[in-house]
Simulated scan of single mutants.
Amino acid sequence: MLSHHESPAQFNLVQLGTRLRFLRTQRDWTLSDLAQRTGLSEAYLSRIESGDRQPSLAALFDLARTYHISMAALFEEEPLNRSVVVRQADATVYQGNGLLYRLLSSQGDGANLRPIHVTIPANRQNEHLYHHEGEEWLYVLSGQLRLTLGGEAFTLSPGEAAHFDARTAHRLDALNEQDTEILVVSCEASHILLRSYL
Results as ranks from 00 to 15, higher is better:
residue 37 R to V: 05
residue 62 D to C: 04
residue 86 V to D: 02
residue 37 R to F: 05
residue 184 V to S: 14
residue 26 Q to K: 15
residue 181 E to W: 02
residue 171 R to G: 02
residue 155 T to P: 00
residue 35 A to Y: 00
residue 174 A to E: 01
residue 179 D to Q: 09
residue 168 T to K: 07
residue 55 P to F: 08
residue 30 T to Q: 09
residue 54 Q to F: 00
residue 195 R to T: 12
residue 153 A to G: 04
residue 16 L to D: 07
residue 173 D to G: 02
residue 152 E to F: 06
residue 160 E to D: 07
residue 33 D to N: 15
residue 83 S to L: 13
residue 172 L to S: 07
residue 169 A to V: 08
residue 28 D to A: 13
residue 153 A to Q: 06
residue 128 H to A: 14
residue 158 P to N: 04
residue 83 S to T: 12
residue 64 A to L: 07
residue 44 Y to L: 12
residue 103 L to F: 10
residue 150 G to W: 03
residue 35 A to R: 08
residue 168 T to C: 08
residue 90 D to H: 05
residue 178 Q to R: 14
residue 162 A to S: 11
residue 107 Q to W: 08
residue 120 I to Q: 02
residue 93 V to N: 06
residue 171 R to N: 10
residue 17 G to E: 02
residue 182 I to G: 05
residue 111 A to V: 03
residue 198 L to Q: 11
residue 44 Y to F: 15
residue 55 P to Y: 10
residue 103 L to D: 05
residue 129 L to K: 10
residue 51 G to F: 02
residue 118 V to I: 15
residue 110 G to M: 09
residue 158 P to G: 06
residue 1 M to V: 10
residue 6 E to M: 15
residue 125 Q to I: 01
residue 149 L to K: 05
residue 38 T to G: 00
residue 123 N to P: 04
residue 10 Q to F: 04
residue 45 L to M: 07
residue 15 Q to W: 04
residue 181 E to A: 14
residue 196 S to E: 03
residue 99 L to T: 01
residue 88 Q to K: 14
residue 188 E to K: 13
residue 185 V to A: 07
residue 34 L to K: 05
residue 172 L to A: 09
residue 35 A to I: 02
residue 74 L to S: 01
residue 103 L to Y: 05
residue 193 L to K: 03
residue 89 A to G: 03
residue 2 L to A: 09
residue 21 R to Q: 12
residue 184 V to P: 07
residue 122 A to F: 04
residue 40 L to N: 09
residue 47 R to S: 07
residue 111 A to D: 07
residue 171 R to K: 11
